[in-house]
C-alpha cells in the first residue's frame, strides 16, 4: 500500500506535488508518466503514448472524456438539487474545480512545464480569490446597521 501511494504521488523522484524544474519542451524523465512514477508510467505509456512526449492523443482523449463525464454529473446534480440541500453548491464547486485542474494541468501543460508558470498563475488565482472573497464578505456583512 505504501509502495502504491509512493508510486501514485511520485514525480521526477521528488513526489507528485513537486512541480518540474524543467520546461515542457524538454522530455520526460525516464519512466515518467503524466501522473506518476515508473509502475504507473508504464501503464500510461502502453495506454496512451509511446513515451516520446509528455502525453499523447490517447491521454488527451481520456482527459476530454473525464471533463465530459464530470459535466454530465454536474447537470445530474442540478436535476436532483432539491434532494441534496446544503450539499448542492459545495459539490458543484468541487466538480468545477476538478474540471479546472484537468484543463490547467494537462491541456495547458502545467503538470509538465516549469514550476515558474504554475507559481505565476497560481499566485494570481490566490490573490484574486482572496480579494473577491473579501469583497463578497464586506458587501454581505459590512452594511449591517449597528446594534
Amino acid at each position: 500500500m505504501a509502495s502504491l501511494w509512493r508510486k501514485l504521488t511520485h514525480h521526477d523522484g521528488n513526489g507528485w506535488w513537486n512541480l518540474p524544474h524543467t520546461a515542457s519542451n524538454e522530455p520526460n524523465p525516464p519512466h515518467e508518466g503524466p501522473i506518476g512514477g515508473a509502475w504507473l508510467g508504464n501503464i500510461w505509456r502502453i495506454m496512451t503514448y509511446g513515451g516520446v512526449s509528455h502525453a499523447g492523443p490517447g491521454f488527451y482523449w481520456l482527459v476530454g472524456l473525464f471533463l465530459s463525464i464530470v459535466t454530465l454529473i454536474e447537470v445530474w446534480l442540478f436535476d436532483i438539487g432539491a434532494v441534496l440541500g446544503g450539499w448542492y453548491i459545495p459539490l458543484l464547486l468541487i466538480l468545477s474545480l476538478l474540471k479546472f485542474i484537468g484543463v490547467v494541468a494537462f491541456f495547458m501543460h502545467l503538470r509538465f512545464d516549469h514550476r515558474l508558470f504554475t507559481y505565476l498563475f497560481g499566485a494570481s488565482m490566490v490573490v484574486g480569490i482572496f480579494i473577491f472573497t473579501l469583497l463578497l464578505l464586506l458587501l454581505e456583512f459590512g452594511n449591517q446597521p449597528p446594534n
Binding site: 488527451y60 465530459s68 484543463v103 494537462f106
Partner: peptide, 12 residues
Amino acid sequence: LMSSLAMVLALH
C-alpha cells in the same frame, strides 16, 4: 470543452 481537446491535439 471539446474545442480545448481539439486545441491540445492540434498542438501535439
